[in-house]
Write a protein that binds this DNA or RNA. Sequence first.
DNA 1: AAAAACTGCAACCGCCAGATA
DNA 2: CTATCTGGCGGTTGCAGTTTT
Length: 322
Amino acid sequence: MGRHSCSVKPKLRKGLWSPEEDEKLLKYITRFGVGCWSSVPKLAGLQRCGKSCRLRWINYLRPDVKRGTFSQQEENIILDLHQVLGNRWAQIASQLPGRTDNEIKNFWNSCLKKKLMKQGIDPNTHKPITNINTCVKENKIQFLEKPSKFVPSSSSLETGSIRDTILSKSVRDPLFLVEFGSGINPIGYTSNILTHYHQTNYETSLPNLASLDHQTADFSDLSGSKMTINSFMMNEGRDSSSTTNSSNMNTSLSAGFQPMRFEGEMYQLNGVDAKYEQACLGQWQLHMHDVQVNNASDFSIYSMGSLPGEYMTDVFHCIRYD
DNA sequence: AAAAACTGCAACCGCCAGATA
DNA sequence: CTATCTGGCGGTTGCAGTTTT
């Protein structure tokens, strides 16, 4: 049929191009220019199919091919265009002089995609990663039937079940769920949950754990249920340096940060206050991880919003995959 | 030091659309 | 109109170098 594949023909070389082959192709194109690719191998003395020659020229030998790391500007252009065009690499490449579709595709798959996901952005839609409603609809998760041993705070859970609360809340953090593999008893299980609270605009973002300020706090309720939260504070990917004191929760941040000042209650755990003074100038994130659930199937964390009296609630619920 | 795992990237594969016989 | 050829494209693979165990 109308399709062809160079691999069908015998005796043709495949794989990486040798410097000699490059030289032959370069010499040929330089002298005769780009024409009918199917005749190039024969005329240039190459044991390659025309398609392979074309690709080698376009992606590597072409004199205007720009190699090396992508600049921040190029990265931004790719992100913007991908949001509009999707995986139309050739169209994206046409807006970046010297860059090939293959190079952009590779850059996307190996770098940008991961970067977006770390920020909690779905690389396909460029929107915050899937919310719990989708997970529930797709039967990816299942709520434990066992009720919480914690008494939910009246402020956030006064109406409906915890499940309802979770389903109705707008999910800001793609990893706000405590997840357990099938067969794992959540009681006594230490997860590596990561969550965050984004002060300024509630955008979702996965934490960059490269630079963190760390502190640990233990909490327990009246029934003796305990959890340990190691919290990290960072400032939007910038290097951070801080000193924290878990007893008085005063935090000072310097080096690479916009100055931060703490002046208010940070969060409250199931009625147990964690007198964690906070507030800030500029963007910041709070990450919590290593949440150890000793005796609870769910718990909640309350964070204070940027406006007086504004509270944000994160409800965590132990979930089991089946 | 060696093996395993990971990563980046060049190249290949299969499909498609347009051109041509 | 149909068959074939060709170039273009996006998805995928596999190699080589690097990092981790």
